[in-house]
Nucleic acid binder design. Structure first.
Length: 589
RNA sequence: GUAGCCAUAGCUCAGUUGGAUAGAGCAUUAGAUUGCGGAUCUAAAGGUCGGAGGUUCGAAUCCUCUUGGCUACGCCA
């Protein structure tokens, strides 16, 4: 599509300069003015539209005159791209001839299959992306699910653009909050284990965190005791460390079970218990270099007035590290581990201040790559009936939610009497649940807060994951049928794209050709929502086409085959886009 | 208080670098099935793009102000 576009752009430019010469206007006065290639409001108007407003001043002509003159000039050209043009008011509308392009497109998709849409726009770039970053005192919740899928999807999109991507996860396995669940276990645990209680291990740990909070209400010393336990941990007290590592293993194992069922994975794990000491040296160095200042009590600070902020503490008066100290350290050590061109932090928008400061400090410390750190900030996820609040117990547990969605999907399959058509009922239901969840989360721009409506997400109607999945399943089913028929007929056909002359077919071909550009844009913008929108448009277009026009009994063999090829291409794009969005492909559902 | 983010149809959301009559889904109403999977499709209705200025031939999009909501501003993470 890009080639076609560029070709037309060149042609229009040529026509414009010819026009300029005839008017006695210097060529250079408008070469800097960009020719805009836009999409007309209605498909029947054409594939591209070029407005001539910007040239109006230079040519001292009304835009509609320029449009019609350009049209005339182009039509007089010997060497012009195939297609028809019309001047509609101030616009030049171009209807391309997709026959050649469609043929090439099919050859390309047929060969590349899953690689179609992938491009080299980010070749040679090493991009590290950090996401999820769970605490090991409780299971994942809905907010994590948004974080996870934004991270995973963005990583896939970057890879599709040719980048070398490393997905990392920093596990927050240390600190007072961890000690709290340990404290509760020491008192109420009685050597119970997830296995003895037959409970998912992270939930088992999470229960003790809840227990701590219940207990702490009537226990004024609770906080203090937790602090004491932390000191013991930091001093390497054997019993404490043993319990810590036992409970952490439970928590982490459970959390990774959730990753597994939701299709989330990482290339490298960092543990806060190992990294929390990093960064202190950096701060001391900065102090020596005069970037930071030391207070009388021994604490170290940075003045942020340069970026319009207050000052920020970097080391406590007792010399110990803080969260930001640690993040300084991990950033540096990560760059040493794997010298990235860019690092993306997928972290909730609450922490915008933190990252602003973090990046600024790293820059101050002289790391030039600090300019290539990016906070991919996302908004909160709320429920239709209000906010998620941990204090009020309205947090939506990730595993529970997935289970609920899967149950809803299963019920639907059974209700539709499709139990026998589906290979594995449980697997299929959970795949549908995943599609519902991931698509719903990605269809909203990351920057925005959003409301997650479980019932709406799992619906098979409308702009949902299951709807998209259904398109894939339906095309697959149809193509299977075609294969059977084809074997009987065994009349080898050649793809003849000129038979695809319906408006809907033209639009579909165009949409298919747009996929690589869409992947590139989503990568550039670090925004999976762009893919989601594209995928939904494609599905809706095909859905209508499929409804209005027969494919397998379209009449002539050649026409059938042409439409089958079109369907095959759509299916391939669906599959490729599914991967980018974490939507499982199902042959039947 | 200061800073950041957000505000588009009753609800949930799209809207590429400013461009033609601002688009979907849900819900509502009215339709389509001797059908390749109807888990679908079509149509109607629904809008002062929070408000006011400004820039521009042209603004949902850019700038200023303003209103409302959320978040952050800790020797927590």
């Amino acid at each position: 599509m890009i080639e076609i576009k560029n070709n037309w752009e060149l042609t229009v430019r040529k026509a414009l300069s010819e026009y300029a010469v005839s008017l006695g206007i210097c060529n250079e006065s408008f070469t800097s003015t960009r020719i805009m290639m836009q999409t007309p409001p209605k498909p029947e108007m054409g594939d591209f539209a070029i407005p001539f407003f910007p040239f109006s001043k230079i040519f001292r002509k009304a835009p509609h005159l320029i449009a019609s003159e350009v049209k005339n000039i182009i039509e007089g050209l010997k060497n012009r791209p195939k297609g028809t043009i019309s001047a509609d008011g101030p616009y030049l509308n171009i209807k391309t001839d997709l026959v050649d392009a469609a043929k090439k497109l099919w050859e390309k998709i047929d060969i590349e299959t899953l690689a179609y849409g992938r491009n080299r726009s980010m070749n040679g770039q090493k991009i590290m992306i950090e996401f999820s970053c769970p605490n090991t005192n409780k299971p994942l919740h809905l907010g994590h699910l948004r974080n996870n899928i934004i991270g995973e999807s963005t990583a896939e999109i970057l890879k599709a653009n040719g980048a070398d991507v490393q997905k990392v996860n920093l596990i927050n396995d240390r600190g007072v909050h961890i000690c709290k669940s340990m404290l509760a276990y020491m008192q109420f645990g009685n050597e119970r284990t997830p296995r003895s209680e037959n409970k998912k291990s992270d939930h088992f740990v999470g229960d003790f965190y809840v227990k701590y909070n219940d207990w702490a209400i009537n226990q004024p010393d609770a906080e203090k005791e937790a602090q004491k336990l932390l000191v013991k941990w930091e001093n390497g007290d054997k019993k404490t460390i043993d319990l810590w590592s036992k409970m952490n293993t439970w928590a982490v194992d459970g959390i990774f079970e959730t990753y597994q069922t939701t299709g989330i994975s990482f290339d490298k794990l960092y543990y806060e218990s190992e990294t929390y000491m990093l960064g202190k040296d950096l701060v001391l160095q900065g102090l020596e270099n005069g970037i930071f200042t030391k207070e009388k009590d021994g604490s170290v600070w940075i003045d942020l007035s340069e970026i319009g902020l207050d000052k920020k503490i970097l080391l406590r008066s007792d010399g110990t590290s803080l969260y930001i100290t640690q993040d300084l350290g991990t950033a540096v050590s990560r760059h040493e581990d794997w010298p990235f061109n860019k690092q993306i932090y997928v972290v909730a928008s609450e922490q915008q201040y933190h990252f602003k400061v973090l990046f600024y400090i790293l820059k101050k410390l002289g790391f030039s790559w600090a300019d290539n750190l990016f906070h991919l900030s996302y908004g909160m996820v709320n429920l239709p009936d209000g906010k998620m609040k941990s204090r009020e117990g309205t947090v939506v547990d990730a595993d529970d939610l997935l289970k609920t969605l899967a149950k809803m999907a299963k019920r639907e399959i059974i209700q539709k009497n499709r139990e026998d058509d589906v290979e594995d009922l449980t697997l299929t239901s959970s795949s549908i649940a995943l599609a519902a969840l991931n698509y719903y989360l990605l269809q909203v721009n990351p920057t925005k807060d959003m409301i997650f409506n479980p019932a709406e997400s799992i619906s098979f109607n409308g702009n949902t994951g299951p709807y998209l999945q259904y398109m894939g399943a339906r095309i697959t089913s149809m193509l299977k049928k075609y294969e059977l028929v084809e074997k009987e007929n065994s009349s080898p056909s050649e793809f003849n794209p000129s038979l695809l002359d319906l408006q809907d077919e033209h639009a579909l071909l165009k949409q298919i050709m747009l996929f690589p550009e869409t992947v590139e844009l989503a990568g550039k913008e670090l925004n999976p929502t762009i893919i989601a929108g594209y995928l939904y448009d494609l599905s809706r277009m095909y859905s209508r086409y499929y409804h209005d026009h027969r494919i397998l009994d379209a009449g002539a063999d050649k026409l059938i085959y042409a439409r089958v090829v079109l369907s095959k291409m759509v299916l391939q794009i669906l599959k490729n886009a599914y991967i980018l969005l974490g939507i499982p492909f199902l042959e039947s559902m």
